[in-house]
Design a protein around this nucleic acid. Structure first.
Length: 441
RNA sequence: GGAGAAGUCGCGUAGCCUGGUCGAGCGCGCACGAUUGGAAAUCGUGUAACCGUCAAAAGCGGUUCGAGGGUUCGAAUCCCUCCUUCUCCGCCA
C-alpha cells in the first residue's frame, strides 16, 4: 500500500513512477484523490455529530440528578442518532471503495530502475566460465530419468502434469541442498522458522498477492469465511509474522529463513522449453526474509543478493545476476534482482533466486511497525530473497555436472550432506532400488 | 468432534449481575523528577494506538475494552453470530 500523503501531495509523481512499471493507474489515483476528500468531509461531519452526542450523553445523568426534565435532550439525541447512522453508511461505502483502490495500486519502483518490461532487464554480474564439453550434453530430464533420481511419469500419474517425484539419491540430493542452504543461513544469523503451509486470506493481502492474484494460488477449505490457501512461497507466511505488531528499533533487523514447498497454479504458463523441473505446481524453496528499519533496508538488500549469489558460487555453478526493469518487478516490490543459473541444454539462464525490497509497501498492508529510539512509530521495511529454489538448482547441477557416461558429479559443498559421495551413477541407483525393495516403510 | 470457562490500556488484574462523570481503577513494568557521595529503597509525576483538524507541534474532536451485528437517548456492561485461548471428555500422528 502506498502512503496516502504522498498520493495527496504528489499525485503526478506517483502516476509517473507507476508508469515505469507499465501499469496505468492514472484513473485509480484520480479516483483515490476524490474519495480521500469525500472521506475526510464525511469524517468531519460524523465526528461533529458524535461529539454532540457524547456531550449530551454526559448531561443526561447530571440533569436527572438535579431533577430536571430531559425529554427535550433525549429527543435531540434521537435525531442525532439518525444523522450519525446516515453519515456512517456514506462513510463506509466511500471507505470501502477507497480501500479497494489503495490495495490495488502496486508499489512504486525505485527511481534507478529502467522503466519497461523484461526486455529492459540488465545483467549486472556473470559468474562461472565456459561450460563447453567435449561430449554431447543431455538435458536434465533425460539425465534424471536415466539415473532414476526423478520420476516424472509417476508424478504425472499421481497428480497430473507439473508434478514429479524425487527418488532415492534424487531425494537425497534435494534434501542435501535444503540442508546446505538452511545451515548456511543459520550460521549467518538467520532464525529458522517452520511455517504453516495453509494460510489465511490476510497473509495474501499483506504480502501483496491479494486481492489481484488470488486465482494464482490453490484454495482449500472453501467453506465460507475460513478459507485457506496453499502458500505460493514462504514469503507469504513470513511477511505476516509481525502483522499488527509494533517492534522496537533495537530488535531490527530481524532475519528469518524458511524451507517450504511452494504451491502454484501456474495457469497458462506452460512452455515446452520449461520441461521437467523448471516449472511445476509444487517445488521446494528456501526463503530468506528480513524486517528492517528504512535506513537498514538498502544494506539488507545487498546482503541478500550476496548471500544468494554465494550459495550458487558455493555449488560451483555458472550463473548471472540480473537487475530487473521496473515492469518486471512484482506488484509489491520496489526493486528486484534475479539470480539466474545456467541451464546448458537450454543454452539459457533460469531464475533460482529473486531478491526484492518491498520497502514499506507490505508493512503498510500488514500494519507492521516499529518504535524508534526517540519514541516515534514508523513502518518497517520488508525484504525477501530465495536462498535458493532447490527445484531449479537440482536440474542445473545435474546438467552442469554431467559426465560423458551420463553420471553426475556431486558439488564439493554437498558431499558431506550426501555421505561423502563423489558421483551419482546408474549403479548407485540400482543399489538403492535393490535395497529399498527389501526394506519396507 | 462433545461439554464448560474465559478474552479489558506493555504484563497481571478490577469493573459486567444492578447500562450513564468508565477510555476505564489498582498492582507490576517502563520513563522522568525528588531524595542520595552513589545506588537500593522511598516519594512524586507521567505512561497506548489510529483517524480528523493544523505547515507542524501543542491543543481540540473522534474511534478502539477479541471481531462483527443488534437493543437503547446512551453499551466494557444486555442480546445474537463468529474468532481465539484454557480445562475436561472422545479420537488420533
Amino acid at each position: 500500500m502506498l502512503d496516502i500523503k504522498l498520493i495527496r501531495e504528489n499525485p503526478d509523481e506517483v502516476k509517473t513512477r507507476l508508469k515505469a512499471k507499465e501499469v496505468d493507474c492514472d484513473s485509480a489515483v484520480d479516483r483515490i484523490l476524490v474519495l480521500d476528500t469525500q472521506r475526510r468531509e464525511l469524517i468531519q461531519k460524523t465526528e461533529a455529530a458524535k461529539s454532540e452526542q457524547n456531550r449530551a450523553s454526559k448531561d443526561v445523568p447530571q440533569l436527572k440528578k438535579e431533577g430536571k426534565d430531559v425529554s427535550a435532550l433525549i429527543e435531540r439525541m434521537n435525531a442525532l442518532k439518525e444523522e450519525i447512522k446516515a453519515f456512517d453508511a456514506d462513510l463506509k461505502s466511500v471507505e470501502d471503495e477507497y480501500t479497494d483502490l489503495m490495495l490495488s495500486l502496486p508499489n512504486l519502483p525505485d527511481p534507478d530502475l529502467k522503466p519497461g518490461g523484461k526486455e529492459n532487464n540488465q545483467p549486472i554480474c556473470f559468474y562461472g566460465g565456459s561450460s563447453k564439453r567435449d561430449f554431447e550434453i543431455k538435458n536434465h530430464v533425460d539425465l534424471c530419468t536415466s539415473l532414476g533420481i526423478i520420476d516424472y511419469e509417476r508424478g504425472a500419474k499421481l497428480s497430473g502434469n507439473g508434478y514429479w517425484l524425487y527418488r532415492g539419491l534424487g531425494s537425497r540430493l534435494e534434501w542435501a541442498l535444503i540442508n546446505y542452504f538452511i545451515e548456511t543461513h543459520e550460521m549467518d544469523g538467520y532464525e529458522i522458522v517452520m511455517v504453516p503451509h495453509m494460510l489465511g486470506y490476510d497473509c495474501g493481502l499483506t504480502a501483496g498477492q491479494f486481492p489481484k492474484f488470488k486465482d494464482e494460488v490453490y484454495w482449500v477449505d472453501e467453506d465460507g469465511e475460513n478459507r485457506h490457501f496453499m502458500l505460493p512461497t514462504a514469503e507469504t507466511a513470513l511477511a505476516s509474522l509481525h502483522r499488527d505488531e509494533i517492534l522496537t528499533e533495537a530488535e531490527l533487523p530481524r532475519k528469518y529463513v524458511s524451507y517450504t514447498p511452494c504451491y502454484r497454479r501456474e495457469a497458462g504458463s506452460y512452455r515446452s522449453d520449461e520441461r521437467g523441473m523448471i516449472r511445476g505446481h509444487q517445488f521446494n524453496k528456501v526463503e530468506m526474509f528480513q524486517v528492517t528499519t528504512p535506513e537498514q533496508s538498502n544494506e539488507a538488500f545487498d546482503e541478500l543478493v550476496v548471500r544468494a549469489e554465494s550459495l550458487v558460487k558455493g555449488l560451483g555453478l555458472k550463473f548471472r545476476t540480473v537487475k530487473l526493469a521496473a515492469g518486471d518487478c512484482s506488484a509489491s516490490m520496489a526493486r528486484t534482482y534475479d539470480i539466474e543459473v545456467y541451464i546448458p541444454s537450454m543454452n539459457g539462464y533460469k531464475e533460482v533466486s529473486s531478491v526484492s525490497n518491498a520497502r514499506d509497501y507490505q508493512a503498510r498492508r500488514g500494519n507492521i511497525r516499529y518504535r524508534r529510539e526517540d519514541g516515534k512509530i514508523e513502518y518497517v521495511h520488508t525484504l525477501n530473497g530465495s536462498g535458493l529454489a532447490t527445484s531449479r538448482i537440482l536440474p542445473a547441477i545435474v546438467e552442469q555436472y554431467q559426465q560423458a557416461d551420463g553420471s553426475v558429479a556431486v558439488p564439493q559443498a554437498l558431499k558431506r550432506f550426501l555421505r561423502g559421495r563423489e558421483m551419482i551413477t546408474k549403479e548407485d541407483q540400482l543399489k538403492v532400488n535393490i535395497k529399498s525393495a527389501f526394506t519396507c516403510g
